[in-house]
Design a protein around this nucleic acid. Structure first.
Lengths: 152, 152
DNA sequence: CCGAAATGGTTTAATATTGAACTACCAATC
DNA sequence: GATTGGTAGTTCAATATTAAACCATTTCGG
């Protein structure tokens, strides 16, 4: 938005906003493009990674963690299920819940893909010094949690 | 990725990466949800805003600015055109180019929506002090440009 | 208990998004 | 000036994404 002119206050906020979004977008699309050889879309990777590291989750929890709608998760989990990477099981206690678990096949896939993914993140972030990385994390966290809480 | 355990170096990079993405996602989805009453999707708003502030652009330039593919822009611009918010004109000089311009109707819509949008950005960013906003912008910029340049 | 409200998921319709194949046009070279 | 190659956009098939309507189940107030 270099072509917008407002008050100092506005331009400062806009500038930080735009640069934040662009950085996130650039880093993320690079990382996600590297996942393609595994045949995983970004969303599919997100679901599998969560199940791999956290354990079985129900659809609503997945949706909450990935900041997506439940309708979306129905589709993404469906596609993972088709490929035998996850299972979906109706809970006996409360039949409204569907527990999603990663299968052995899914586990193997993530185990194969994740280490390289982490190394690419390290490489990408290494542009920033350790102190800068911590600073960025703290600022982003403060911004994200405040906005999330304010407009809940 | 609180459930991943690696080296200090890895966890620092992952933490910064995750918090960056989540902050961007949270702020952006809040802002974009506020645009719905205008009947604009995030992408449509992005295109319209660019045309409004920069002037007429061809499809490739729009794709580059919005970090999207040309195929995507064909669709988004098509939907904006259906609603009479932009026009698409074949260039005489080089007939491969299609120049996209905002119409008076589109201009009015953005003029009506944009000021509130800016104020919401200011409000969201105001969690951070002016110095923190500048710091965040600088760190995000450094990260984004380096990653974009490295993996071009 | 029972009917009403709340909750978890699915479905539906519309738009978005991508990569890849394809079309139209331009440019350069021989 | 025809072939060759490159560039701008479109089309296509598949997945993603959302909001809204809907279905099933549970919970709660009376």
């Amino acid at each position: 938005m270099k072509h917008f002119h407002g008050t100092v206050r506005q331009e400062r906020a806009l500038d930080a906003y735009v640069k934040l979004l662009r950085a996130a977008d650039t880093v993320d699309s690079f990382l996600m493009s590297q996942l393609e050889p595994a045949g995983l879309t970004p969303s599919q990777f997100g679901v599998l990674e969560a199940l791999y590291h956290i354990g079985p989750l129900c659809l609503g929890e997945l949706a909450h963690k990935l900041l997506k709608t439940s309708g979306n998760l129905t589709m993404v989990v469906g596609n993972l299920q088709k490929r035998g990477l996850v299972t979906r099981k109706r809970q006996a206690a409360d039949k409204r819940f569907y527990l999603v678990s990663i299968t052995e096949k899914g586990r193997k896939l993530i185990a194969q893909v994740f280490p390289r993914h982490v190394e690419r993140i390290v490489a990408a972030m290494s542009t920033l010094s350790p102190a800068e990385q911590k600073s960025l994390a703290a600022l982003a966290r403060k911004l994200g949690t405040t906005v999330a809480a304010r407009y809940r």
